[in-house]
Each structure stands twice: as structure tokens, then as C-alpha cells.
Design a protein around this nucleic acid. Sequence first.
DNA 1: GGATGATGTCGAAGCGCTTCGATTGCTCGC
DNA 2: GCGAGCAATCGAAGCGCTTCGACATCATCC
Lengths: 336, 336
Amino acid sequence: MVKITDVARHAGVSPSTVSYALSGKRPISEETRRRVEESVRLLGYHPHAGARALAGRRSDVLALVVPLRAGIDVPVVMRFAVSVVTTARRYGHDVLLLTQEEGEEGLRRVVDTGLVDALIVMDVQLHDPRLPLLRHLDRPSVLIGFPADSDGLTCVDLDFKAAGEACVEHLARLGHRVVALVGSPPEVYVRRTAFAQRVVQGFTAAADRNRLSSAVHPCEASPVAARAVAEQLLREQPALTGVVIHNEAVLEPLIDAFEELGLRVPTDLSITAICPDEVAESLRVPVTSIALPSSEVGSQAVELLMRKLDGKAVPEATLLPPTMTQRAGTARRTAE
Amino acid sequence: MVKITDVARHAGVSPSTVSYALSGKRPISEETRRRVEESVRLLGYHPHAGARALAGRRSDVLALVVPLRAGIDVPVVMRFAVSVVTTARRYGHDVLLLTQEEGEEGLRRVVDTGLVDALIVMDVQLHDPRLPLLRHLDRPSVLIGFPADSDGLTCVDLDFKAAGEACVEHLARLGHRVVALVGSPPEVYVRRTAFAQRVVQGFTAAADRNRLSSAVHPCEASPVAARAVAEQLLREQPALTGVVIHNEAVLEPLIDAFEELGLRVPTDLSITAICPDEVAESLRVPVTSIALPSSEVGSQAVELLMRKLDGKAVPEATLLPPTMTQRAGTARRTAE
DNA sequence: GGATGATGTCGAAGCGCTTCGATTGCTCGC
DNA sequence: GCGAGCAATCGAAGCGCTTCGACATCATCC
């Protein structure tokens, strides 16, 4: 194994000079730097990570904590993870994979052992038990999603309010005047109120702004509930032509229910959803949708972390703008 | 940060004794060991990973290289990764996540820097450019899948031959006498011949053993090709009642084609597939299938790696037995 | 023209751990 | 009853790197 002293000897300088030439932490003459780099290349020198971590008190490794629990959308997590790794590498960092299962202990372990010098935590719950720890750890962290109290934490997520608005604006532009939001099931509200409620806010605000008649209905994650909500909607808003669905589980049942009730998508009813693209695409009638931009969230999280590692200040909340993908499920309102 | 000298002082012993007490590499009196452990707990001591890696010349970290390319089944990869992390933790190891994109350089980097002391490589290609490197690296590795030449490498995968056999045996037990295999598209054969061909071997062997009339048809990954193959099958084997499909992409189109040709699944035609459970389940008619046991492959890979790290010999090839999940797509042959 | 800064380089200390003798008491066996 | 042998512990060296202070060199400025 080739070490820094080998490079130093080969380049005819001292080990410390090699170190400075590579890190740039002290001025080194152009001439010397080139000689050192040449030697590094020739000898195939790779600094020992452990030695570095020990002397430099930083490991250049990030921890990524991925969720395990059921109901997690796997492709989203995977895209996110890949984006984190790719971005981290651009900053010379590696990524240690941890599972939710490790809990607080696991976080403390990787930090205390000096294995990682920053953390990315996915699937943050409203009252996540790891929050106090993350707050008091002397290592920077970034959360994906917003807990109930995000004070003193750095969080990244889709701007759900803007997403709700965008759905309505889209429907409004297509001429729809009566719209409804089918929201998340109660469980979701319990765990992650913040994000579900922000959709409602955005939806309502945009509907009011556009002077649309609107209604909001939470919905259980079952076909039976979907059917009931569909019937209720038509009863209460007979002129309904635009629906926003923020509830993956009932997307399909809801469309089925509407069609069974005699409404064709998109001829009679336009549908937009907030859900992963895979879900929106694989429907019988693919719907226009806004997805969590997993890759951007991943790279954004890493970039925030890098700034924090550099001692720079970062905003506590980063809300990513929604992007809408138009599909067959929405159409211009047919004049009646 | 609490270090080993703190623990030593607190326990009234020397640092080396603490080290030995914790590693068990030298006999330490019961009494002392308990005192040390007590101090460790009380002080919340976590040995510094870098220092350990430096002095002990092992990092207790495994690299996991995950594929990026399109066409990869994401849930399978994810399950695999989670299983690797979970199993690794049981052995006191952590997992560094790398993407395929890093290539050979990336592997060399994490090894040369001493960041990891073993590697798990997924999605190994038939003539993978990383093979020579993996062979000559002085760190153990385990591959998921079999390259063309697996000499000197440790590989784990589903026993595809047994899977092919199991499908046929299942159909035979249900009374089917005329069966066919719809195989992978040519691209797959190019990249990973071994595994596709082993399915054919198993299929043929089991068919012969059961004295079934059988045929094998590769199939392009398009609905058009699927339709063509379906028609060809019925022409060449009019008495066909059992089909094994080893080609995710045409599973759905093929079933559609059969039904359009007047064959109902499973009444007229029983179908078994080798594909991820998600795929088999989400079909209009869920088919009986054999999936890659991702979790087992993951834990198996880690266990092999641990044995190699301990200097023990391990088999070069580990073939995991197939497990069949019965679904609506197969039925007893109806007497005619 | 000698004090003043840069600029570029070196030597040595030290990061926190493991590990290799060496040392100290013991228990045995004869 | 004394050396052999073993169990338990200690001290010190060293893993490969970063970083701090020191030093040498050279241009700069009244």
C-alpha cells in the first residue's frame, strides 16, 4: 500500500508538503504541486480514509437513513438514494446506508464513532423520536419531510401547498369551474399532518382566487370508501368536472367509481393527482400529476449538508417547486 | 468525546486492557472485563472508527454496489439492500452505498483508501469489466449473479435451473401434458446468458423426466412479438395447456394474446412465471411464480463475506432454491 | 539597507486505537 | 521448595495522516 511518505519521497518533498499540495490549505508553488500530483498519479496513491478521519477529524462520509416500514414507495426511495450518492460523490463524500430500524442508537453510534460527519434522514414523522437527538448532535443533518416542530432543523420537501395550487390552476385554465379535493386518509393526517394540510391550503387558496366552487373530502384507503366519496361528491357538487386526488391508494378505485357512476375520464371529469409518477402512469387512464421530485430532493439535501459542513448558514425550510406532468386524465371542459 | 484512555482511567486499567477486554483477543479476568464494560456503558464510549481502521487495518464496512441502468427492478434491489444492511449490522459491519456508475475506479478507491474491507456487487454482467479487478483485489467480494467465467469468484443467485424445473413439475402435478417455455429476449441472452439458459435446461430436463411434450421460444420484449409467439405456440402445440414465462416484459401482453385467441387463463391455459412477485401479483390474472429471493440473497451474500473475512473457505457458487408462490394463473387441467 | 511581510517548505506532534513483547503473580509438578 | 508454565495486565510503538509552529527565502518599502 502506497502512503503519503512514498509520494513525498518520490516527489522529493516532505509529507506535509504533499498533504498541503493536495488539500490546498496552504500555498504551494505551482511547480511543486505539479510534481506531487504527478507522483500521486504514478504511484496510484489513495490516502487512507481512517488515518485521514483520525487526523483531520472528518470522515467525508454521510449517513443516509432510509425507511423500512410498509407503505413506503420504493422507487421514490431508490431514486432518492441514488441521487444522494451521486451528488455526495461530486463533493468527494461517500454514503453510509442505514435503516430506520437502527433508530436513535444507530444515529448516535455512527456519529460518535466518527464514521460519518453528517446525516440525511428520510421519512421523518410528525413527532419523530429522533428529533431531539438530531437537534443536539454536533453534526449537521438534513431531514426529508417536515415534522410538527421543525425549529432548529433543516428540512427539505416538495412544496405541497404549491402543488395543491398548481393542480387547481391547471384545472381552472382548462375551464373547470367546480372542483373537489380528495385527500389523504386519516392515518396520514395523524403521522404527517403538515404536508397533507398544506395541500388543502393550496387547493383552497387557488380555488378561491379563481372563484371556483370547491370542496374537500378526506378519504379512507379502501375501494369502499372511494366509492362512497365519489357518490357524495356527485350528490353535493352535481356540476363537478375537476378533481384533485392526494391519496395514492384510492386513485384507481376512485376512477372506477366515477366511471361506474356514468362519468368518463377525462370527457366528463378531469383528474389530477399528487402521487409518484409510476402510479399516475400505470392507471387505466393515466392522470396528470405532480410527483415528489426525488432526485432533486436528494441532491438538494446533499448540497445543504455540504454548506452546513462548510459552516455556512442554510435556510431551515427548503420547499421544492412542483412540476406537473400532463397525461390523458385532464381535458378542457366540454361546453355544455 | 470519550476515548479509550477515559474508559481505562475510569475502570482503573490500562488502555490496552480495555482494548483486549472489548475485543476478546487476549484472556481478561471476568472481574476486569465487567468493570471495563461498566465503564464503557457509563461513559457512553464508542471507539473511533478511523482510529480503529488505522490501527486494526480493517474498517468493518462493506461496500454495496447497486445498479443504475434502466430495466432494473427497483423493489428487488431495495429489498436486497435492506437485507444486506440488516445482516451486516448483525455482524457489526456497516454498509457503504456505491452506484454502478463509479465503475472500477470507484471500487479501487474504496478499497485502496481502506474505507471498506469487502465488497458486494450486484447486477454482474456476463463479461463485466470489473471482474479482473475483483479477482485481484486483496479484499473479499461476493457477486450477485453469475458472469460468463466465475472462476475464482464467489457468486450468489437464484438456482434458475431448479426454478425452471419447479415450474414444469408444478404444471405436471396439475395434470398438464403439453407445455412451453417463453424465454427472455435476445438482449438478455447476450448480457447474462448463463441464467436464461439454465432456466431452459431445467425446463427441458423436467419436461423430459415427466414425459411431457415441450417447446422453447425466446421472445422479444414487445406486445407484437408476444402476440406472434402466442400464435406460433398454438399452431405448433394445439394441445398446449401449460406455459412457463421467463420474461417479465411480455407477461401481460402474452396473457392478453392468449385470451384474444380464445384461451382463458387458467381454465384453458395455466401460466407460471419466473419474475418478481410484484409483477406476478399485479396482473389481471395473477400468475403462479418464482421470484428472486432478494432478502435471502442479501443475507447470504453478507454471510459469505463474513466467512471470507474470517479467512474461511466458501463455495464459489451459491444457488438459492426457488420458492413458488401459487396464484390464480394455474389450475388443474380440465378433462376434455 | 535592514526591518517587514509574504510565500513556500519542513519537522514534529498528535489524532485514538491495536498489538506486540515484557512483566508480574500464580499454580503445578516433581 | 523451586523452576516451568500459564493467566492477566501493562507500556510503548506505530498505524498514515493533518496541522501547527518554525524556518528559509525573496521581494518590498521607507
